[in-house]
């Protein structure tokens, strides 16, 4: 049994990292908003989904007018990524303005409820735009970067099997890493980043120190949503088929990743995302084997939620977070 598990490890690692980077970047959106407002932005998963749809629509249109063959695919992908990020960023800002800002002093339950409302609204809007245009809400984008690369991992040691990767994997990985590095630099080294950290620590004191709190919160939503939307495009490129309901489960898992890493902590979210992705892939590949066929790969979602619940019970501050004492 151990042999079988070892054999599949290279492939599991590669698939897990792909999924993990997606989780990591989405988790960033959750963690930033939570750090600053102590609000779980339920609609974040739907922003990711909207990004995937906007990106796919752009790719389809661009393919239609024949730009794909004219331009190198990578240039086009970058353009689409940037445009989508801009649009979803604005969407995120708009959501904050309409649904969260009026409720900033309301009891905590209320903004959570609007967040659920927004997320349902977005799902349905995207559904019927897609259905109106394509006749079906499950959309398959043009396939880019499909060439397979074989990795000779069996050459390292004979216990491993060979693994294969799609070339889009490299693109997903590289773009996600670039996004995370840039964000980390932005938050830790720039003036606006400092303002964000200040607002997260204490909103009132920050406003006394001439930080424009509303602007900083808007900016946080913009960045988080832009990253989420861009990840949506990457997701669509990597996995091909999208539907309006992907955002929910994926958002939930990204949230799990954020909690796992320590919510409010940006590096924690990245670590949590990667860990969760690898663990989930490991579970889906080996659960059947390890439990002697009692639990199949269908239980991988249960596995992810179980991680969430266990973390919340035993280490609610997460791997990299610091425990916060409650003030009366």
């Amino acid at each position: 049994m151990l042999n079988d598990i070892l054999q599949s490890i290279p492939q599991v690692l590669i698939d897990g990292l792909t999924l993990g980077t997606v989780y990591a970047v989405i988790a960033l959106g959750y963690t930033m908003v939570y750090g600053i407002l102590e609000l779980i932005n339920f609609a974040h998963g739907e922003i990711f989904m909207t990004g995937a749809f906007i990106g796919t629509a752009m790719l389809i249109v661009l393919t239609g007018i024949g730009w794909v063959s004219a331009l190198p695919a990578i240039v086009m992908l970058i353009t689409v990524l940037l445009l989508t990020a801009l649009l979803t960023g604005l969407l995120g800002m708009g959501i904050e303005r309409v649904a969260y800002r009026p409720l900033r002093n309301a009891p905590k339950l209320i903004p959570l409820i609007t967040a659920i409302g927004i997320s349902f609204l977005l799902q349905d809007l995207v559904r019927f735009i897609a259905e109106l245009k394509k006749g079906n809400y499950i959309v398959t984008g043009p396939s880019l970067f499909t060439s397979q690369i074989k990795i000779n991992s069996s050459a390292i040691s004979s216990v491993f099997n060979d693994a294969s990767i799609k070339s889009s994997f490299i693109i997903v990985l590289v773009s996600a890493i670039i996004m995370m590095v840039v964000l980390d630099f932005f938050v830790n080294k720039t003036k606006w980043g400092m303002a964000m950290r200040a607002v997260a620590q204490d909103r009132e004191t920050a406003s006394l120190m001439s930080v424009n709190v509303n602007k900083v919160i808007s900016l946080t939503f913009f960045i988080g949503s832009a990253l989420g939307g861009a990840t949506g495009v990457l997701f669509a490129v990597q996995y091909g088929t999208i539907d309006p309901y992907i955002g929910f489960i994926l958002g939930l898992k990204a949230f799990t990743a954020a909690v796992l890493g320590g919510i409010g902590n940006i590096r924690g979210a990245m670590l949590g995302g990667l860990l969760l992705g690898v663990m989930e892939m490991f579970a889906s590949a080996n659960l059947t084997l390890m439990t002697g066929g009692v639990f199949g790969a269908e239980y991988k979602d249960v596995f992810a939620f179980a991680i969430l619940i266990i973390v919340l019970i035993f280490k609610p501050e997460g791997l990299l977070g610091k425990p916060v004492a409650e003030k009366v």
Partner: peptide, 17 residues
């Protein structure tokens, strides 16, 4: 009949606000 989500979502937002 397909717009349940839209209607529920809108109701949640309007009532919460």
């Amino acid at each position: 009949s397909k717009m349940q989500r839209l209607i529920f979502g809108a109701l949640l937002i309007v009532f919460a606000l």
